[in-house]
Write a protein that binds this DNA or RNA. Structure first.
Lengths: 142, 142
DNA sequence: CTGCCTGCAAAATCTTTGCAAAATC
DNA sequence: GATTTTGCAAAGATTTTGCAGGCAG
């Protein structure tokens, strides 16, 4: 469930006010563990009978991403997906190119290899994107 | 350098004609090993004194990507980058979030771990994106 | 009450598309 | 000579921004 304390702290830190609209966006993001785009979040809020403009959805998500409460996924199709990070551990994604389903994976070996590669270059790792585009079992043999 | 045989074969396979414009786009893509966006390709062609419209640049790149002559990179900033695949082996990318510089890496261990992960899920790996966003040494201590 | 926030619509950005003119086979 | 291609500009898609009125502190 949504933790308003975390939201309040983040907004305060950014010098922003605590508003109903911002809370609705956070509520909706926390309502599922899906990987949805901005339009889906926007529509879901409206289907709950609440009213928040697209602009506010985008603006609020930006704040949440900046404060690491929400993760932004760029799959290369021009639409960013978002997932809340409440009680979440680090993971990367498997994406079915047929049905769009997204699953999560995590591999310690890969994580440490990444660190070594970056170290060898003498660089500093900030973040990474690791996406495995697959055909899932249902799409392979329907 | 650009290999026109490969281009001719790809166009024939797609049922497309061999035109000057398509060759110019391929020439420009092969002219460097950079990771450039469509606009940069377009401008570079024009700076060579040749004339190819943006639409044709986009349309031609699509064909080249489809035929694995060019690789499309999505860095999550809304602008796709392209690199030709002449004499290229598989690699992934390190991207400096300060200066935008792109470098390449390849790690056998990571490659095989990926295969194992996908296998464990019972899926089929089609392609992957692995990008390490870093601060390069020049940007770290200028 | 003051000034930030919202909603709307317009702008911005990158890419795709429709159509008449031009080029290829 | 028929049919693809091209170039242009307009349309699309997603996201961002400017501004007048509304609401939090």
């Amino acid at each position: 469930m949504a933790t308003y304390d975390q939201l309040k702290r983040a907004l305060k830190k950014e010098g922003l006010r605590y508003t109903q609209q911002r809370q609705y966006v956070w509520d909706e993001l926390c309502a599922t563990n899906d990987h949805r785009d901005a339009e889906e979040i926007y529509l879901a809020i409206h289907q709950s009978g609440l009213n928040v403009s697209r602009a506010t959805v985008y603006r609020t998500i930006d704040v949440l991403v900046k404060n690491k409460m929400v993760r932004k996924l760029e799959l290369g199709d021009g639409r960013a997906r978002y997932e809340h990070k409440v009680n979440a551990t680090h993971h990367d994604h498997l994406i079915c190119i047929q049905c769009g389903k997204i699953e999560e994976f995590m591999d310690e070996v890969i994580e440490s290899r990444q660190d070594e590669i970056v170290k060898k270059f003498g660089y500093k790792l900030v973040r990474h994107i690791h996406q495995l585009f697959i055909i899932c079992s249902e799409c392979e043999s329907p």
